[in-house]
Amino acid sequence: MVWSSSLKNKCFFYMRRMLKSKTLSYIIAISLFIGFLVFVALRQRTPINFSRLAGYESLILEGFINTIIVSVIALFGSIILGFIMYLMTKSKSQTLRTIADVFTEIIYGTPLLVMIIVMAFLIGPAFNSFNRIVWALSGIIIYITPYMSNVYRSVFKSISDEQYMAMDLFGFTATQKYRYIIIPQVLRMLMPPFMNNFSLIIKGSALLNVISHRELFFTISLFQTRTFAYSEGYLLMWLLYIMITVPLSQLTKYVERRWSLE
């Protein structure tokens, strides 16, 4: 009797520990999501049939690659423009600071979709330019710029005044300060928020379909209108975006942990 009750306790102990374990909880959470997807897929009027994708793989791949290309361009564009904007907010000139301030307010107040449309169909033509993708992409870049500027601000602020004082005391030259102390710290701290914004950009790039750019959303729409495989298209589209953004966010968390200086 004594023996069996201790065995029972042991069983309970292991079960509780399993339920508490992180891996198991992730398996449960992900299974719930997949279960939900399967439920949704099974409830469609016409049964889901992924074989209808046959022949369109290269079209969808093209969209997938284009999404990544435009997102990378927008990322680097906004990293550069964000830095310029950050410098403007730090400028001694009141005019430059005010310009940055007003720009930020206007951009914050504009939905990304509206920004893309305005750039491609309103501002571009005003300059006699009908290269829609360039203008639309600039729209995304401009939209992310204030967020990038904020990233720079918080990162540069996190280098304490005392660190600067210490550098001065030891007699580091300006170049040495940046090369050995400031930039190495800043780069580590910038990486995670850059990656977060990259994810924002990837998601936002889906809106480029309004100018008929052949990114993922658009190529899948093409596939859908040609095959009428709407459910398959939406499902695939969703999964493909998640396939980029979720690993990216996991990588961000890893980098954040690994490089943290706090």
Binding site: Q163, M165, L261
Partner: peptide, 13 residues
């Protein structure tokens, strides 16, 4: 001279 501040000013990286 050497100077030690109120909080440590070590370079965190």
């Amino acid at each position: 001279i050497g100077f030690v501040f109120q909080s440590h000013t070590l370079f965190p990286h």
